[in-house]
């Protein structure tokens, strides 16, 4: 007699917890062979609002950690990601990648996370500087996190796209509300388990699976989201994000070409430069 396997139910990731959609809705994640891989939660407007509220609550704590500490946590994500690589390779094969392609994507994802982890205690030195003003003042500019960032993950590559978009948002101390690849949500869901076991504080990353078309307008219009990476949006969805951004002057990063490889300037896109003046004198 063969043993009956134990299947997992795949949920949203909000505030460090695995939750079903409050709507009770699910949708099937379909493999390359047309078979249903699993049912996943279909996030709702209410779930998205909860995610933003939770992300807002987590900004202060995450942003006030030292760059050194954030760097260690991001590096810990890479360690855990590497440890779970067999699972990710299997999930990428399920959606049509060859074994070699899947291994390559997982490896690149780990390496990218390591690369960004190392920026956490350095990017301020690249972006900040002392300003030689023409007067007796100490004057310094340095980047600070923008706040709550919506991340629309590309449909593919499902894992590398997620890591490439999310890591630069986290480096300076932003928190994220992530809309996962809709067609291939499994790697993003497994990634939340990586986050959960990597000392990432609850609420720093919140991941919603579901219909991008349905959720993007709510994300775009939300008054407590400060910026959106529209990298995984269609041109129509990107325009919708730009329109929604007007309500509270959100910063929008538009998809460019094939998308980014890795760049410290992606970190800068989710920062605000603050300049502080103080007189010098006796």
């Amino acid at each position: 007699m063969s043993r009956l396997d134990v299947r997992k139910t795949y949920k949203l990731y909000l505030g460090g917890k695995f939750l079903r959609s409050e709507s009770g809705r699910t949708y099937p994640a379909v493999g390359a062979d047309g078979n249903v891989l699993a049912r996943v939660a279909k996030g709702s407007r209410k779930d998205l609002r909860d995610a933003v509220r939770i992300a807002r609550g987590a900004v202060g704590g995450w942003a006030s950690r030292t760059g050194y500490n954030r760097g260690q946590i991001l590096y810990r994500i890479a360690e855990t990601l590497e440890d779970r690589s067999a699972t990710f390779v299997g999930q990428l094969e399920d959606i049509g990648l060859s074994n070699a392609e899947a291994i390559a994507e997982v490896g690149q994802s780990v390496d990218r996370m390591v690369w960004y982890a190392g920026w956490a205690d350095k990017f301020v030195q690249i972006y900040g500087n002392l300003n030689p003003v023409a007067g007796p003042f100490f004057n310094i500019s340095s980047p600070e996190p923008t706040g709550v960032v919506g991340v629309v993950v590309p449909e593919e590559p499902a894992l590398l796209g997620l890591v490439s978009r999310l890591a630069p948002v986290l480096v300076p101390g932003n928190t994220a509300v992530v809309l996962a690849s809709e067609a291939s949500p499994m790697p993003a869901i497994t990634f939340t388990e990586v986050l959960n076991s990597s000392d990432v504080p609850g609420g720093v990353v919140n991941v919603l699976t579901g219909s991008k078309e349905e959720l993007i307008p709510f994300l775009a219009d939300h008054m407590d989201v400060n910026a959106i990476d529209a990298g995984g949006a269609t041109p129509e969805q990107a325009e919708r994000i730009q329109q929604g951004a007007v309500h509270n002057v959100k910063r929008v990063v538009l998809p460019v070409g094939d998308g980014p490889t890795q760049s410290p300037y992606r970190i800068a896109a989710f920062t605000e430069t603050k300049t502080v003046w103080h007189p010098k004198g006796l």
Binding site: F137, N139, V276, W277
Partner: peptide, 20 residues
């Protein structure tokens, strides 16, 4: 975007200015 401490409304070409 700009914090003036023990001074106010100071501007300089070398000093970045702009908002959150």
């Amino acid at each position: 975007g700009v914090v003036w401490a023990n001074t106010y409304n100071k501007f300089d070409p070398t000093s970045p200015f702009g908002g959150y």
